[in-house]
């Protein structure tokens, strides 16, 4: 989980260069990401963690924060 957290944070850091993103902070409310972000995030998660994000995972609550993303990865990988 800790490794997942580091990798997710590292990926997100390029979108939040001027902001120290907290683990429970709502990514989408900060206004940093554009319309392509959702697609880029899904590609990153699938490649980095070898999981398959499908329709039923596409609930905003699964992607809203670093913690939520890590939980999704953990759940999909197990």
């Amino acid at each position: 989980m800790e490794t997942t957290n580091v990798k997710v944070k590292q990926f997100l850091s390029k979108f939040f260069r001027k902001h120290e993103l907290q683990d429970d902070e709502d990514i989408f409310s900060l206004g940093f990401v554009n319309s392509l972000f959702a697609m880029q995030l899904v590609m990153f998660l699938e490649k980095e963690f070898g999981i398959k994000v499908d329709n039923k995972d596409l609930d905003m609550s699964n992607f809203k924060s670093i913690n939520a993303i890590c939980e999704l990865v953990d759940r999909k990988a197990s």
């Binding site: 959702a38 697609m39 596409l58």
Partner: peptide, 17 residues
């Protein structure tokens, strides 16, 4: 295709890519 609300952010942008 997909679920309600992901038409553009996921389906449409995937097509457009």
């Amino acid at each position: 295709v997909g679920t309600v609300g992901i038409g553009l952010s996921h389906v449409g942008l995937h097509c457009l890519d």
